[in-house]
Nucleic acid binder design. Structure first.
Length: 220
DNA sequence: AGCCAGGACTGAG
DNA sequence: CTCAGTCATGGC
């Protein structure tokens, strides 16, 4: 087989997944602020549980940055409890909301700033690490950045691709340049990961089996 | 019945 | 810098 560049392989994987799963249309939310809320609540938590918390907030009309920044913490506990880690998430979510209001006035105003500045700002907030910052930048603020999560790292490893965070980010961003493609690729990798690339993998039916080193190593 | 989710933070070594 | 411990609910 002729040698292909990392970029060529990534591009092929992207279109293979897109063809196989179809567009995922992430991030499911009505507002940019809702994306930010979801990105905090979904940390190490299944999206199913996050949906309940979001629903609770919406039903009370509280999915609003000004209302969350003023809400009583105890009340927020009860509303987001289904999404787990509810004490620290409530505290962090409230604080992050207050900070954004103070520093930018509203979420829309954040979009005027460049990616590097916003990235540094976001990770300076308690409760926002690398991945959450990337998610907010990409899905809430429409900035061109690639989200690297644990599935991405594991999948790249098993495919024999660069598996270092920054290396993955650089390679993907050097390959997929459209905002919508960057959004889709991360969503597709999560979908692939959930179905086929757990620690104890179920490779049956995986669309990437032919290029998965792990698969080749596992089957005798 | 466990195991683990669309992580981040902290303290120890 | 790496890494285990911690935070917590609910689905499968």
């Amino acid at each position: 087989m002729i040698s292909s560049t990392v970029s060529e392989r990534i591009e092929k994987i992207f279109y293979t997944l897109l063809n196989y799963f179809g567009p995922q249309n992430w991030w499911p939310a009505e507002t940019r602020y809702e994306v930010i809320v979801g990105s905090i609540l979904t940390q190490n938590t299944s999206w199913k549980n996050v949906e309940k918390a979001i629903k609770n907030l919406k039903e009370k009309g509280l999915l609003d940055i000004e209302k969350i920044s003023e809400i009583d913490l105890k009340d927020l506990y009860e509303l987001i409890k289904p999404s787990g880690f509810y004490k620290q998430k409530a505290e962090r979510l409230k604080n992050i909301s207050k900070r954004i209001l103070i520093d930018f006035g509203n979420v829309e105003n954040m979009m005027r700033y460049d990616l590097d500045y916003l990235y540094k700002y976001l990770i300076s907030l308690k409760g926002i690490g690398d991945e959450t910052a990337e998610s907010i930048l990409l899905y809430a603020l429409d900035k061109k950045i690639f989200v690297v999560d644990s599935y991405t790292i594991r999948i790249f490893q098993r495919l024999g691709l660069p598996s270092n965070r920054e290396e993955i980010k650089n390679q993907v961003m050097n390959t997929l340049k459209e905002l919508d493609n960057l959004k889709e690729f991360h969503a597709l990798l999560v979908e692939l990961g959930k179905r086929y690339c757990k620690k104890d993998p179920k490779c049956d039916g995986c669309p990437l089996n032919d290029s998965c080193l792990f698969r080749k190593g596992v089957e005798r």
